[in-house]
């Protein structure tokens, strides 16, 4: 069960600000979903390997050959804030 404190922690981990109202709203729904997920506990997976990639592929590479980059203008074209060619982010602290 996820409590309010857990939800606050997960919200912080996910960088999703949650209002008090959000927390009220989400907690029961998340818990009912997790409750449903609990179904998988019944599956016997003893000795079963996890499947990360559905196709057994290995060793996919590219050669060390330069390809076209975006122009600075293209790179900045979607940035809400930029300055002197840099993308502008808020202060760190």
């Amino acid at each position: 069960m996820i409590g309010k404190k857990d939800l606050e922690h997960i919200g912080w981990l996910a960088r999703l600000e949650l209002s008090e109202e959000d927390k009220e709203k989400y907690t029961p729904k998340l818990n009912s979903i997790l409750d449903y997920f609990g179904e998988i506990d019944k599956a016997d997976t003893e000795g079963v390997e996890p499947l990360y990639h559905v196709l057994p592929m290995n060793n996919v590479f590219r050669e060390d050959v330069p390809t076209r980059s975006l122009s600075q203008e293209e790179a900045l074209s979607n940035a809400p804030k930029n300055q002197d060619g840099f993308i502008k982010a808020p202060r760190m602290m």
């Binding site: 330069p66 390809t67 076209r68 980059s69 975006l70 002197d84 993308i87």
Partner: peptide
């Protein structure tokens, strides 16, 4: 000393160039 970045074809030779001038959808 590689010619390109690890996951895309952008050049590693950027040290004297303007910011954000050697980027592509992958490294951006």
């Amino acid at each position: 000393k590689l010619r390109t970045k690890v996951f895309c074809g952008c050049t590693t030779d950027y040290h004297n160039d303007p910011p954000n001038s050697h980027v592509c959808p992958v490294c951006l």
